[in-house]
C-alpha cells in the first residue's frame, strides 16, 4: 500500500510544481490572451539569477530567491514594455510570434554566459534527510516546493478575485476596448501581467532547478512541458492550472508505477497525460475550468 501512497504523493508534488510553472502562462493568457513561448527561458533565467546571487555575490539563498523573483518581475515587465507594448491591438498571432522570437533572443543571451553551457546545482540549504511517514518519503526540497507553490497560487487567486488591479486585469482580458472605456490602462495591465508571470517563473525555476540541477536545456524545456497543464486547466484559470497540474502529475506517476514495464508497455508516464488530455478535451473543449464564451452577433 505504501507503494501506492508514495506514487500519489510524488504525483501531487510533481503536479504542484507543474502548476507553478504553468501559472506564468495562465497569468499572461488571463490578461492578454497570448500564449507566451518564451516562458521556459524566463523560468531558466530566474533559476540562474538565484544561483548567481547566492554563489557569486554571496547572498544567502533565501534572499537570493526573493531577489531573483523581484529581478525577473522587472525583467519581464521591461520585456513587455520594449517588445510587446507596440503590439497592443495587433492580431494575437503577431504577439505569439514575437514571444517565439523573444525566446530565441533570451536563449542567445543565456548562451553568452556560462549558464548556457554548464551544469550547476544550488548549495544544500535544506535538511538532506527526507521526511518519511508510513513508508512514504518526501524530500524537503519537494515539500518546500509544494508549500511555495500553494502560497503563490493562493496569493494570485486572491489578487485576481479581490484586488482592484486584479479585477482590472480580468476586465482587460474580457474586453480590452471595454476596459479602456472605463479608464483602465491596458498597457499597464499587460506590463503587470508579464511582471507577475516573471515572478512566478523565477519561483518555478528555483524549485525545478533544486530538483533537477541547473541545466539550461532541462530548465527551459519546462516552459513547453507544462503547456498541456495550461490547456487542460482551461487556459486562463488559476484553479484550473492547479487541478490540471495535479491531475497530470498523478497520471504520470500512476502510469509510470503501474503500466510501465508491464504488458510490454514503456514510457506511458510520458504519454498517458496527453492521452487523458485529449479525452477530457473531447468532452470539455475549453478545458476543465475554461470559460465557454458565447458571442451574439
Amino acid at each position: 500500500m505504501s507503494y501506492f501512497f508514495q506514487i500519489v504523493v510524488s504525483g501531487v508534488v510533481v503536479g504542484s510544481i507543474y502548476a507553478l510553472a504553468a501559472l506564468g502562462l495562465v497569468l499572461i493568457y488571463k490578461s492578454s490572451r497570448v500564449a507566451n513561448f518564451a516562458h521556459g527561458q524566463i523560468i531558466a533565467a530566474g533559476a540562474f539569477i538565484t544561483y548567481f546571487l547566492t554563489i557569486t555575490i554571496g547572498i544567502p539563498i533565501f534572499f537570493s530567491f526573493l531577489a531573483s523573483m523581484i529581478i525577473t518581475f522587472f525583467l519581464a515587465m521591461s520585456v513587455e514594455r520594449i517588445f510587446l507594448r507596440r503590439l497592443i491591438g495587433e492580431p494575437i498571432i503577431s504577439v505569439i510570434m514575437v514571444t517565439i522570437g523573444l525566446g530565441s533572443i533570451i536563449d542567445g543571451l543565456i548562451y553568452l554566459t556560462p549558464f548556457g553551457t554548464e551544469n550547476y546545482s544550488f548549495p544544500a540549504f535544506l535538511p538532506t534527510t527526507p521526511l518519511t511517514l508510513g513508508g512514504v518519503s518526501i524530500s524537503w526540497t519537494q515539500l518546500v516546493g509544494v508549500i511555495i507553490t500553494f502560497i503563490l497560487i493562493g496569493g494570485f487567486s486572491w489578487f485576481f478575485k479581490k484586488s482592484t488591479v486584479g479585477i482590472s486585469m480580468r476586465a482587460v482580458s474580457d474586453d480590452q476596448f471595454g476596459a479602456m472605456s472605463v479608464g483602465i490602462s491596458v498597457p499597464k495591465v499587460f506590463g503587470l501581467a508579464w511582471a507577475t508571470a516573471g515572478l512566478s517563473a523565477a519561483a518555478a525555476g528555483c524549485i525545478i532547478g533544486n530538483i533537477t540541477g541547473l541545466n539550461f536545456d532541462t530548465l527551459h524545456a519546462f516552459g513547453i512541458v507544462v503547456f498541456p497543464v495550461l490547456i487542460l486547466g482551461g487556459l486562463d484559470s488559476i484553479l484550473g492550472a492547479v487541478v490540471a497540474g495535479i491531475i497530470m502529475g498523478l497520471i504520470q506517476q500512476l502510469a509510470s508505477g503501474y503500466l510501465d514495464g508491464n504488458w510490454g508497455l514503456s514510457g506511458t508516464g510520458e504519454v498517458m497525460p496527453y492521452i487523458i488530455l485529449l479525452i477530457i478535451l473531447l468532452f470539455k473543449p475549453h478545458g476543465l475550468f475554461g470559460i465557454h464564451e458565447i458571442e451574439r452577433v
Binding site: 507503494y3 508514495q6 506514487i7 508534488v13 519537494q142 530538483i211 506517476q253 509510470s256 508505477g257 510501465d260
Partner: peptide
C-alpha cells in the same frame, strides 16, 4: 522523459 520525480519508476 523530463521527470521531476522518479519514485514510481525506482520502486517498480
Amino acid at each position: 522523459g523530463k521527470n521531476l520525480d522518479n519514485s514510481a519508476m525506482l520502486k517498480r
